[in-house]
């Protein structure tokens, strides 16, 4: 059976199943749908709880952040672990330190953009943009509580700022700023920070990731602010890991694991 026919059959069957399910969906945008406000006659859904109660408990107006980093912080920790795992998998696949592998780097690629042009237009733009991108990324991390964004987006942007350097110049420039050693260390460190915020409450006798109890350590007034500040800490951890791994993935992908040269 050719893949096209097989694909068509698979697609048709899946599509029918999915559409069968859709036939029963609540109307798009219905605030009374079970997902938005709970099953009829049942308890209100968790989303209502978050909207109504979470601010009082966490003092974080951005519901996405409070749910992400606190209520479902366990998910988020593993989301970061997924990133780390992907990074490690990519290193395991690509990273090669052997010297004799000339073919790995490939023949020296002629840059598609001429040298001067590259230096003047792209390089200069990048030099101007990178600090701004970085400060914006840090802003995004720090203000995840109030505005969209958070550790993950900030981390990606930080990583992207280094990718930008690598794209504009070459990989060595970027690696000079953010070496393999440091990104490997930061990747682990990020999750250690995250999990550390989870383990410290355990030491204090509460459950994993129970930030409320951290008020003793963070010296905040009340568990709410402890949660709020812990979320920031957790987001910083996420940002570190994501930044490191995003850049590392690019570095490895663009150089076929040799970390030399670049695109």
């Amino acid at each position: 059976m050719s893949p096209k026919i097989f694909a068509s059959i698979a697609v048709v069957i899946t599509g029918i199943v999915l559409l069968y399910g859709i036939s029963d969906f609540p109307t798009f945008g219905d605030p009374r749908s079970p997902a938005n406000s709970g099953v009829e006659g049942g308890a209100p859904s968790t989303s209502l709880y978050y909207i109504n109660e979470s601010y009082g408990v966490t003092k974080v107006p951005n519901l996405v952040t409070s749910v992400l980093a606190d209520y479902r912080g366990y998910d988020t920790m593993f989301e970061t672990v997924v990133v780390l795992a992907a990074g490690m998998a990519i290193f395991a696949i690509l990273r090669s330190t052997t010297k004799d592998d000339e073919t790995v780097a490939g023949p020296a690629r002629k840059s598609s953009i001429d040298g001067d042009h590259n230096r003047i237009i792209v390089g200069m733009t990048c030099r101007l943009a990178v600090p701004v991108v970085q400060i914006f990324a840090l802003y995004v991390v720090a203000h995840g509580h109030y505005s969209p964004g958070g550790g993950f987006q900030g981390g990606v942007m930080l990583g992207a700022s280094f990718i930008l350097i690598a794209l504009a110049g070459n990989l060595d420039d970027a690696l000079g700023r953010f070496s393999e050693k440091s990104y490997m260390a930061l990747a682990s460190l990020g999750i250690i920070i995250y999990a550390g915020f989870g383990v410290v409450p355990q030491v204090l006798g509460k459950n994993f990731l129970d930030f409320g109890v951290l008020q003793k350590i963070l010296l905040t007034d009340g568990p709410e602010m402890a949660r709020s500040h812990s979320m920031l800490g957790v987001e910083i951890g996420v940002a570190l890991t994501v930044m490191s791994i995003m850049f590392a993935i690019f570095a490895n992908l663009s150089s076929r694991g040799t970390l030399k040269g670049g695109l």
């Binding site: 990178v130 600090p131 970085q134 400060i135 914006f136 840090l138 802003y139 720090a142 203000h143 109030y146 700022s161 700023r177 953010f178």
Partner: peptide, 25 residues
């Protein structure tokens, strides 16, 4: 960007700026 001018956010800002300065000044 920030629009928050309380001590906490300003100190966050200072730290962030310090970091960026350190990385890419």
């Amino acid at each position: 960007f920030s629009g928050f001018f309380d001590a906490f956010h300003l100190s966050l800002g200072l730290i962030s700026c310090a970091i960026v300065t350190w990385i890419s000044s």
